[in-house]
Amino acid sequence: MAYPRGGMAVKDLSFRVAKGEFVFLTGHSGAGKSTILKLISADLRPTHGELRVSGFSIGELTAREVPKLRRRLGIVFQDFRLLQDRTAEENVAFALEVTGARPDTIPTRVHRVLTQVGLASRGRAYPTELSGGEQQRVGIARALVNDPPILLADEPTGNLDERSSRGVFQLLRDINAGGTCVVMATHELALVRQTQYRVLEMREGSLVFDSAEERIATEGVS
């Protein structure tokens, strides 16, 4: 994958992620982690090669199909990306409203997912009234509310102190234990080492290490 005015951002790589797996995507800053996640969410299109996500072929995705893909993905960012003029509840509800969920089902679903991330009592708070860790939990709740089979997290703990960081990571592990596939980009090796999850290490746009050592000819995530 090459950026319009850049060189190849990620190249020569091929991997497959199974349903319900937890995968770390590691590497130094600029290694290409975010690029991989953007490719998976069709925010970027591969300039070469093939990429399949949950039955969608990213290279051939039409503009109409992108929203369909996105509804099968939950995406979490380092900077939370919450709407500042909406409460935690409204931020989460937004993800349901936008996808045309039945209005009468929204409050219950929002409450359920806020409870899941441990914020049942903070639903009425605005992002500025929440700690970083709490804001990221709102971000995760928003990503989860549509029950996606895949959760993508780009440095989800990058802006958090150690304690919040551990809490958020534990939450992601719990979510994965519930059957959701989690792909988490991070450069915090402390988190990576504390578990036995699969690790994909990037360096200068290439995959240099796969703890599963299972390389398959097609580049892909499913």
Binding site: S41, A63, R64, V66, P67, K68, L69, R70, R71, I75, R81, L83, F94, A95, V98, T99, G100, R142, N146
Partner: peptide, 16 residues
């Protein structure tokens, strides 16, 4: 822009 990119992110259609 931020709001729109978030709408996109969570799967809003362009029409929406």
């Amino acid at each position: 822009a931020r709001e729109i990119s978030i709408m996109r992110l969570v799967g809003a259609t362009d029409a929406f």
